[in-house]
Design a protein around this nucleic acid. Structure first.
Lengths: 196, 196
DNA sequence: GTCTATAGCGTGATAGAC
DNA sequence: GTCTATCACGCTATAGAC
């Protein structure tokens, strides 16, 4: 099982660093120390290997989010802890960075990506509903919109940090969310959110 | 000048659709109808062609943002119009979609990208400062953080829409920003934003 | 289960005719 | 200024020895 695991580990790293389309089996072999045959013995090809690797990444990120969002503290404290998580901002999101690639969206790799965002959204919205129930945020706050905003701000924060080549850009964007959520918590129960 | 322009137009389209690393000169030739020699007569190579194309995209997106953010209406109305701009959400941002690629960030293509985000940030923050001056938002609102949040929400909105394969996901995220900005406008002048 | 060798194709770029 | 023909190389995948 050793070489197989080495191949998966190398693929996880390369998917993060160079993405799927630009990741060559040759690079995977070099990074893992395996020979040509090992890859095609254990996996049907590049896509099958990437799928296994990506599903592992998905599990890791889900676990990290779960630990915080189902952890200690009031609902809004947990949201805040999620927003202040330490992230390798300029490296980009291990899952979100793959989304622009056509070869990802139009292949089996789309499934774990969509699943991850759905999971994260459900998790965050659940916490926001708790915050509403406990009175931390107004009754009429739009939890679905705020959920999507939080996820988008994280993803966009990665993009900004990479564009500026500066981790701080992501923190600034996420502090913006925290700042507006703080204002929401101060607002009365009838703060007239946007109509759709 | 005809074939040269055709090559640039084809490159702009392909940069959007498949990105930089996965865009082959062969594709550009097919899409533009030009022959092999035309590309290398007018440009030094793939990177030089992509740079010209990307600078044109940059100019187009700057112009679009400028028209809205320096246009009619109160400052916060203009921000709102920027957030409700019609966007090809599932296609992704023509500039932001290139950011995850190593070959983009580590090449001459990085410059127009960074420049665009700086321009957009300056523009939005300028409008937020006007909003502050006119009393539309509280004196102590953190304009830089909110600026970064707005840009990140747009970029992340594109990612979400593409991950879900649903344009509505982006609108929902941006409605989240609009909703929180509306709450901010309702809030008093001492709404205690997050401390950094 | 792991390796080396190699196939078949597409890439980015060049040469040189018209 | 535009074209076709071609180069050297790297890609994904397969074959077959050990």
């Amino acid at each position: 099982m050793s070489k197989k695991d080495d191949l998966i580990a190398a693929t996880k790293e390369l998917l993060w660093q160079v993405g799927y389309e630009s990741m060559s089996p040759k690079q995977v072999l070099a990074e893992s120390g395996a020979g040509q045959g090992s890859l095609y013995h254990h996996f049907e090809g590049k896509e099958a290997l990437a799928l296994i690797a990506l599903e592992e990444v998905e599990a890791e990120l889900r676990l990290r989010a779960e630990r915080i969002l189902l952890g200690d503290g009031s609902p809004m404290e947990r949201i805040d802890r999620f927003l202040t998580l330490e992230r390798a901002a300029t490296r980009g999101c291990r899952i979100g960075r793959l989304v622009p690639e056509v070869g990802v969206i139009e292949s089996s790799l789309h499934a774990p990506i969509k699943r991850y965002f759905q999971f994260l959204g459900n998790m965050i919205e659940g916490v926001l509903l708790q915050a509403k129930a406990s009175g931390e945020i107004p009754e009429d706050a739009h939890t679905k919109q705020i959920t999507y905003l939080i996820v988008a701000a994280v993803q966009g924060g990665y993009i900004l940090a990479r564009a500026y080549q500066d981790d701080a850009a992501m923190s600034t964007a996420l502090d913006g969310v925290r700042s507006l959520l703080a204002a929401l918590q101060q607002a009365g129960p009838h703060s007239a959110p946007v109509e759709i």
